[in-house]
Design a binder for these strands. Structure first.
Lengths: 340, 340
DNA sequence: ATGAAAGCGCTAACAC
DNA sequence: GTGTTAGCGCTTTCAT
């Protein structure tokens, strides 16, 4: 049974369709039909071929099939971090699987060069389509690929320099909800700490927060802090916001990393001294005391939509690019409901 | 420039090496050499070919290259869950990248059938090797693939029915550390709640815990609870352990999910009533009160080792299979240091 | 319904 | 140093 020919260096050589045809004494074409479950094959041939396949342990070579047919049945996902909790990626995988697609996932790792390498590599692999959570801020180099018909969908952030389908959360509405909630609880000095405004979502959220302040007639001075998420910068921002004659009594954090940095700086009871609403769910946020009130993104909707947009574009490369905005929801759990 | 031929249905056709050769008025072979940075090409040809490549927006087809050369430069990782925090997967990706390998990651999703589908699919894609965090308990169906020379490495758990390289944590030592630590703190009634003993790590850890009890002359009655991780079962196990005339004063949990279930059942201050040591880090465990004392696995060592074992096997298919055991470490943070 | 042969896009011998 | 040709393993006309 283990009739493996060895060639050079002890590396066994897998049997090919030709070997199966010879073993079964049928034509190559017949083996191909059996492998692809073509119903027009005589039952006796099916038996013979399947016996030969089993005897030789034949496995079709997917690469050759892909080369011949032109499609890979695989889509790529270039996300910023695989391997951290990534519910969007989970949703992409689930949706892709349901559609019979294989998923090739890679981390851009917050590195513009690496993002580019990954995307180019995916194009060279002739994947059926690519979902990207863009990081760099100039994706014009992808224009030739788009012209060549490579389907691309942006997730969480738009891409600059090219026009592609995009799905993302309603950042402005989320910030509005957070602000409004704290305002309703009676807070009048509400601060915001978020990501750098060079990052798309950081910018959108900071802008929305300033708009909320303005809408409620509050001044933004000393209340809006955006920049890199480092423990030092977050600590400094907190100190500024909480000091002075008129300190903030409530805080909105612009993303998960900021929320964690705030919690780590103030200690676990941060939220018993300060009303806190975070953008993004925090793992185990429900076990903290008080539990964390957050603006939650519908990550699985986003991931599923990304795949759906991609499939729609694969089916019709000519359809106009569209941007889908997914609503967010306020999860009231305690930390935002601390009195003034 | 955007000289894209369209054929059927508006799908553009990408130019091939032949097109580039024609455009540059050189032979196919020359284009191939330029693309592969062969130094023996005359500089004037390099210029001509690169101009043609740019003019046509040519991108080499990786599938054809792979088919011809026989190697894919890609390894597969079949893990139980992509998309949850998975530091081992992160380490695999990093190590693979450093070695110039692409990573194809897929979730087996705690589903034996799916695991099998994924592994077979990876074999059909002729990946250079496969890392699997095994879930099912009979992998004999992979024997033909192993015979055919497919390199496979098991991670976290051994595979049954076949002999492959394996890397995993020293489960017994970790349980020993947890028990010993609590015993040193003066606890004499130490309970254990863990995963089903049908799962390899659940079994190893339960067995090790019983051995620890025995070594300290304690009886196991009512103290060792293994089974499916559901809120109900964990609650029942807790009730049993904490009730009666001689209730447990300390608890060891067998994995992260159990730890979370315990925390959720007892409330966040669980550890102020009960000394608790968990197996596995818990995200944000350091922000709880008291912070969680855990047995931490060296996940990045495990992931890196998995790739290294795989590369060693790719290089030498004949080398004997080996199992690498990675030490674990006790992280003392507070929850295991609560008095009797 | 089955068989022979061409060809997907590339690399590797070999000749020039 | 460059061009010609065969062939990787499969699918797909086209004959039979």
């Amino acid at each position: 049974m283990a009739r493996v020919r060895r060639e050079n260096g002890g590396r066994p050589k897998r049997p090919t369709m030709v070997d199966v045809a010879r073993e079964a004494r049928v034509a190559l074409r017949t083996v191909s039909r059996v492998v692809n479950n073509d119903p027009t094959v005589g039952p006796e041939y099916v038996v013979k071929v399947e016996a030969a396949i089993a005897a030789l342990n034949y496995r079709p070579d997917e690469r050759a099939r892909q080369l011949r047919t032109g499609v890979t049945g695989t889509i790529g996902a270039a996300v910023r971090r695989i391997a951290e909790a990534n519910p969007e990626l989970a949703a992409i995988e689930r949706t892709a699987r349901e559609a019979g697609l294989t998923l090739l996932a890679a981390s851009t790792d917050f590195d513009e060069t690496r993002e580019r390498d990954i995307l180019i590599s995916m194009c060279r692999q002739r994947l059926d389509g690519i979902i990207v959570e863009p990081f760099g801020d100039n994706h014009a180099y992808l224009q030739p690929e788009l012209d060549a018909g490579v389907p691309v969908v942006a997730m969480d952030r738009p891409m600059s320099g090219i026009s592609v389908d995009c799905v993302m959360s309603d950042n402005a509405a989320g910030i509005g909800m957070a602000f409004h909630h704290l305002h309703q609880q009676g807070h009048r000095r509400i601060a915001f700490i978020g990501d750098s405004e060079r990052v798309f979502s950081g910018r959108e959220r900071a802008v929305a927060f300033r708009a909320a302040l303005r809408a409620h007639g509050e001044a933004a001075e000393g209340l809006v802090h955006s920049g890199e998420i480092t423990p030092e910068r977050v600590a400094a921002a907190l100190d500024t916001a909480l000091r002075g004659p008129d300190p903030a009594t409530a805080l909105v954090t612009g993303n998960m990393d900021t929320t964690l940095a705030v919690l780590r700086h103030l200690g676990p009871q941060a939220a018993s001294r300060l009303a806190l609403v975070g953008f993004d769910e925090v793992p185990l946020g429900d076990l903290l005391q008080p539990a964390l009130t957050v603006v939650a993104q519908q990550t699985s909707v986003i991931g599923r939509t990304a795949v759906e947009l991609l499939r729609a574009r694969i089916a019709d490369p000519a359809r106009p690019a569209q941007t889908v905005t997914v609503p967010v929801a306020l999860k009231v759990r305690g930390s935002g409901e601390v009195g003034v």
